[in-house]
C-alpha cells in the first residue's frame, strides 16, 4: 500500500487548477513513475494526490499554424516516440524518448512528469534545452510561458509556483527549422538505465560554415545545462574536424560535472568532450552537411 491519504482527479485543466487553488497540499500525479517510487522509498509521506490522467486534451501533440510544435504534458514517452510530427521535425526528442526506461515505463511515464521532476538525468531535458523549449504553466489566475533553462532551479527543484500546472511544451519553428540534430545517451545498459551523460546537439549550416550550434547536456551538472561558450564560438567557423574538436573542448568549460557512483568527474568531462564531437558530427550530416572524416 502506498502512503496516500487523499485522491482526487480532474477532467479538465480548469478543474485541476481550481482544485489546486483550494488545496495547496495536493501533489500532482501524471504517470506516477517518480511520485510512486518516492512514496515507496519513504521520501514523501501522507500524500494527497490530484491525478491529471483523465485530462485527455493534455496528451495531444500537434503543430500550430505558425509551425510551433506543441506537446501536451501528459503525452507518454511511447506516444512521443511514435508521433509522426515529432519524428519528422525533431527526431532528437523521439530518440531521447525511446532511450528512456523500458516499454512498460514509457507506456505510462509522461514528458511533463519528466520535466517537472527536475532531475538532471531526465532523458527529455537535454533535447528540450537544445531546442529552446518553452513551458506553458497555468494556474487558476494566470498563464505564463517559461524558457526551460529558467525552469530548472536545482536538483529536483523547478520553477512551478504553488497552484501551477505544466500544460504544454512549445518548440518554435525558428528553433528547429533547418537544423539537424543528434541525441546520445551514454549509459551502462541499452535499456532501463539512467544516463551517465546525455548530449543533445542541434546545428544549422550556412554553406561550409556553422550558422548556429546549440548543445544541451544532462548529468553534467546539478541541472541540465547549455554549453554557451562553445555555442558562441561556433557561428561563422568552417565546418571542420578542428572546429568540431574546439567546440568539444569548450563544451567542457560549461559542464559542472561531479563524481558520483556512476562515474568520476574526470570521466564525465572526457565524455562531454568526446560525445559533443560525435553528436555534432552526426548533426552536421543531418543538417545537410558533408560527413567529416
Amino acid at each position: 500500500m502506498y502512503d496516500i491519504i487523499g485522491y482526487c482527479e480532474a477532467e479538465t485543466v480548469s478543474e485541476a487548477t481550481a482544485l489546486l487553488a483550494q488545496n495547496p497540499n495536493l501533489r500532482l500525479i501524471a504517470g506516477g513513475t517518480d511520485v510512486l517510487i518516492k512514496m515507496h522509498g519513504g521520501q514523501i509521506e501522507a500524500v494527497e494526490l490530484l491525478s491529471l490522467r483523465k485530462i485527455k486534451s493534455l496528451a495531444e501533440i500537434r503543430k500550430a499554424e505558425d509551425g510551433t510544435v506543441v506537446i501536451g504534458a501528459m503525452a507518454t514517452f511511447t506516444k512521443v516516440f511514435n508521433d509522426p510530427i515529432l519524428r519528422e521535425v525533431i527526431p532528437i526528442l523521439t530518440e531521447a524518448a525511446i532511450s528512456m526506461g523500458g516499454p512498460q515505463i514509457r507506456n505510462i511515464a509522461t514528458i511533463g512528469g519528466n520535466v517537472c521532476n527536475g532531475a538532471t538525468s531526465a532523458d527529455s531535458a537535454s533535447s528540450l534545452f537544445a531546442l529552446n523549449a518553452q513551458l506553458k504553466l497555468v494556474s487558476q489566475q494566470s498563464e505564463r510561458l517559461v524558457p526551460i533553462r529558467e525552469f530548472y532551479l536545482g536538483p529536483g527543484r523547478v520553477a512551478l509556483k504553488p497552484g501551477e500546472i505544466l500544460t504544454e511544451i512549445h518548440i518554435s519553428p525558428a528553433d528547429y527549422q533547418g537544423f539537424g540534430g543528434q541525441y546520445i545517451k551514454f549509459a551502462m545498459r541499452e535499456a532501463m538505465d539512467i544516463a551517465t551523460l546525455a548530449v543533445s546537439v542541434v546545428c544549422k549550416l550556412h554553406g561550409k560554415t556553422f550558422e548556429e550550434v546549440r548543445i544541451g547536456l544532462g548529468v553534467a551538472g546539478p541541472t541540465p545545462l547549455r554549453c554557451l561558450e562553445a555555442e558562441v564560438y561556433a557561428p561563422g567557423k568552417d565546418v571542420s574536424v578542428e572546429s568540431v574538436a574546439e567546440i568539444g573542448k569548450l563544451a567542457v568549460n560549461s559542464a559542472k560535472a561531479r563524481t558520483s557512483w556512476r562515474a568520476s568527474k574526470d570521466y564525465r568531462e572526457h565524455l562531454v568532450e568526446e560525445l559533443v564531437q560525435r553528436a555534432l558530427k552526426t548533426a552536421i550530416v543531418n543538417a545537410g552537411g558533408e560527413q567529416l572524416v
Binding site: 506516477g32 513513475t33 515505463i105 507506456n107 505510462i108
Partner: peptide
C-alpha cells in the same frame, strides 16, 4: 492490450 507494470499502477486507475 498494452503492457504496464502493475506494481506502480494505482488500482483506482
Amino acid at each position: 492490450g498494452v503492457p504496464f507494470d502493475s506494481c506502480i499502477y494505482l488500482a483506482v486507475w
